[in-house]
Nucleic acid binder design. Structure first.
Lengths: 222, 222
DNA sequence: CTTCGCTTTACGGTTTCCCGTAAGGAATGT
DNA sequence: ACATTCCTTACGGGAAACCGTAAAGCGAAG
């Protein structure tokens, strides 16, 4: 079993629970190997390397409230930074995010070892994940939700997101072509924008831009 | 101190942590007074009343993942249902929601006793909240975020919210008068709606409905 | 009852948006 | 080189939204 684990999690209640889970797994836990900020996490990792006693596993959240200025503000940035200084450390992401696509992308792009979403049975889920990591396997939680292509038939491209964001920021539709042209985004014609928007709305069953924007807001698309 | 507390929380890890907090407060906790679903919560409450041993305090989340069909799907519905059968029970809401306005509204409208947002020091926060409830005080966590009145010069009336919600649901502006008339909401004239919307947008410095809707979404106004 | 002031509604002109059609352009295949 | 196809753009008619002005409604005060 792991002997040295670091928890990066800004919610005290969640952190407490993860500590308890580790204890139950028989991981020798000295009750101090947890941090509330990403910057603290990276410093702990560095110090442990210098002390010739590096961490074996990092359990980290993805989103951190930025109530005080931090160099590293998100779990993704933290993971990238840590991989630079200790590529062999195992990483378990524990996040409210529960979309399968996102989890897969993290495993592929950042080479994380496990993704456990905060959900109904997340404590049991985490135990399974840790045991899986021990065997050098990747762990994708079975609780992850596949974004069904029925509910969400449209895949939003960056182009779509750009247009919708501009609308959401109050730019009149007729002015968007100038913006796109200035930023070398194609197509930039007003007709293309109109067609794209009406296509998205048709596929999603919407009638108005307002509806589309609410949908994108709720779905975290913008 | 409370002797009988029920936790309604669908995240196992959070539930575990709340249980630990209760134990630390010296609350006699039999390790079974927690549920993952709202329906289970209401049933426990009912049974406890029948057994002449009712719960004194409910600690509940607001949003529950609906992975299995439930009669009661949200914390708000749960609170309303419980208030009907046991109006004297104390209620502490423990949620990821951290906007002061929302918390205040819950205290005012649903008569909850405390609101603690899931945040950095939420375990300590919850202890303070429970002690406050014991003294029959309302507890609004100091960690709640105020949406500054500088950024939000306009006070949204129910009328405003109705109109904006209809827009957000895709109803064409021109159809709103019929809806308002049908629901006896005045003024119902199209002109009045136009004036109201343009007034709000002017005060807020917006130019388009899309912008207004994003603002209301972000601010929890709708 | 009349007047005053305020709110609500009606109306008309202008702008923006929506949507269908057709023309222009680039890439691909024959 | 030509044809085909797909993507982009231009254009125009009609609908919706926007905005100012004027009329109508309505309650309070005299």
């Amino acid at each position: 079993m792991f002997k040295k684990v670091l928890i990066a999690e800004d919610h005290e209640s969640v952190s407490i629970s993860v500590q308890k889970t580790l204890t139950e797994l028989g991981i020798v836990y000295d009750n101090s190997n947890y941090v509330y900020y990403c910057d603290d996490a990276i410093n702990r990792i560095k110090k442990a390397i210098n002390d010739k006693n590096p961490y074996e596993l990092l359990i980290t959240d993805l989103s951190f409230e930025d109530d005080t200025p931090q160099l590293i503000k998100s779990g993704v940035e933290l993971i990238k930074a840590i991989k630079l200084i200790q590529p062999t450390i195992k990483i378990l992401v524990f996040s409210i995010e529960n979309r399968l696509e996102i989890a897969k992308a993290l495993i592929k792009d950042l080479d994380i070892d496990a993704f456990v979403p905060k959900a109904r049975h997340d404590a049991k889920d985490m135990k399974l994940a840790i045991e899986s990591i021990l065997k050098n396997n990747k762990y994708l939680s079975p609780n992850l939700k596949q974004t069904s292509s029925v509910e969400n038939p449209h895949q939003f491209s960056n182009y779509d997101k750009t247009i919708i964001s501009l609308l959401a920021n109050g730019m009149p539709q007729k002015d968007i072509p100038f913006y796109l042209e200035k930023n070398n985004i194609k197509p930039s014609g007003l007709s293309s924008i109109e067609k794209r928007l009406s296509h998205i709305k048709e596929v999603q069953g919407f009638t108005k831009n307002e509806q589309l924007i609410v949908f994108c807001k709720d779905g975290g698309i913008i």
